[in-house]
Amino acid sequence: MSYLTRWSRKRSIWVFPVNAASCNGCDIEILASLTPRYDAERLGVEVVASPRHADVLLVTGTANSMTRGILKKIYEQMPEPRLVVAVGACALGAGVMRGCYNVGHGVDKVIPVNLFIPGCPPRPEAILFGILKLVGEHPRGQVVAKEQIGKVSTTEHEEGEK
């Protein structure tokens, strides 16, 4: 893969936030991370209105029986390479809702997840940190998704396929 492609993928991250049965807290913090104090646009992050435009899917919430189908569909509509970030305790593993009759065990049981951002809800700084880490901008390097999570498509993986 050319340097240009790799660079542009790092610098331009279009996200599509999806609320899969979340309490709103994480969604508000995602929105807050766009607002002047945090300003995610600095990093090239832009919220897009259609999953077809998106590079990163920000999933919040427990992915209950009603939303998991929608979540899958939205994930299918995204063009490769696509990354999924699970935001908040509910998306990680149902959080405080664990054991409710309509709640599964986290988003990674539904779609492959590349990065988990813990917190209830995570602060906007944490979300920005996570996104930076996702694209390998953080000194600690790029997140390589765990194999057991399923098929993943980070930029590095794709390079291997070519």
Binding site: N64, S65, G99, C100, Y101, N102, V103, G104, H105
Partner: peptide, 19 residues
């Protein structure tokens, strides 16, 4: 129905294949 005392969330979750 879920709020009746005989309803068991664990069983319901298994039936809904949420596990």
């Amino acid at each position: 129905p879920p709020l009746r005392k005989e309803a068991d969330p664990e069983k319901i979750r298994k039936m809904m294949e949420l596990e």
